[in-house]
Design a protein around this nucleic acid. Sequence first.
DNA 1: GTCTATATATGGATAGAC
DNA 2: GTCTATCCATATATAGAC
Lengths: 203, 203
Amino acid sequence: MTKDLSTEEKILEAARRVFLRDGYHGARMEAIAKEAKVNKALLHYYFRSKEKLFDSIFQQIKGGLLPKVAEIFKADLPLFDKIRLFVESYIDLLLESPYVPLFMMNEVNKDPENFIQKMGIIEKLQSFLPYFIVQLQDEIEKGNIKPIHPMHLLMNTMSMCVFPFLAKPMLQRVSGMSDAQYMDMMRERKKIITEFVISSIKT
Amino acid sequence: MTKDLSTEEKILEAARRVFLRDGYHGARMEAIAKEAKVNKALLHYYFRSKEKLFDSIFQQIKGGLLPKVAEIFKADLPLFDKIRLFVESYIDLLLESPYVPLFMMNEVNKDPENFIQKMGIIEKLQSFLPYFIVQLQDEIEKGNIKPIHPMHLLMNTMSMCVFPFLAKPMLQRVSGMSDAQYMDMMRERKKIITEFVISSIKT
DNA sequence: GTCTATATATGGATAGAC
DNA sequence: GTCTATCCATATATAGAC
């Protein structure tokens, strides 16, 4: 059992689940308390307000995504390996937290400037994007891949990884898959996306 | 000026904007009234409740998307033409209503069964998917395209069209584009996506 | 630290005058 | 049809006993 957690940790775990599932406005302090099996008043004892509790969750979620991506793109690897690694580790991450993408999209939508600043996105991008652009340009000049704008290549690849998680509830229903089947499909998809991207840009 | 609209129409217009931007829970009746420049009580006079007003908007939004897609896929056209037409008309639609995708993702997330039923998605899919699957299978057997599961092909194509709208607020900021520039980029993207998909599956 | 009870704030809904 | 005033439910937040 995971029930030897401190009250504070139980609340954080529950809050994460509820906020991710229902969004900030949809989430209810009551629901979080129930999920954590603690009294409602304790949420305020530990975190003072809904807003502050939410911020704790946000900080926690923020850690996982970008650092991994930056690491891959900065590595000294052939372009196709980077693409493959990016797709694989990105989908693996999302398989663990399928609600994160929709949550993030909503957060950024509420207040883009603030979101980007809180996430430190600009600095992260600057830390690896230039390397990637040079590498891509290099491969194009060598004639190994067709000309493509780095932004579109990244956007295409990311789209195919993330979108199926955003649309999961819908796609799962219309295709009649169980949760397990959907996850299996996404694991298969790692290979499919990689091949799709590579065979599209290879000369 | 558009201000010779009836009060009811003004409310509907305002409600559409606010619900799309803030989502159901995030939207405030007060905000809709203000946006429509009418008294708050009038929203209830015309639509009785927030729920009912929301339903009106939902019905209105529902009309645009799927019918167009179904039409294209049922048409008697070569596969590559269908892909091109799908991408073009899909992105054109989204350019007019960039908030619709995130709104839809949130709605389906709240209550998938209910959403799919209200949208009539299953029937729409059944009306054109079989044709598409046969056509794709046919092209694969003829050796014109590489083997690919129809679901993945559709998912890939749709992902690349929709995701940039979902992530618009973020992508726009990090790339420093204005609204107009972002729209131009999406228009360019129609060609890029089509070529990306086709060159990926062509033998 | 944890509970019950309660205060306070917000937002949706209604009554009633005009 | 449109307004002001107000009600009422819900949800967040606090007080105070244990």
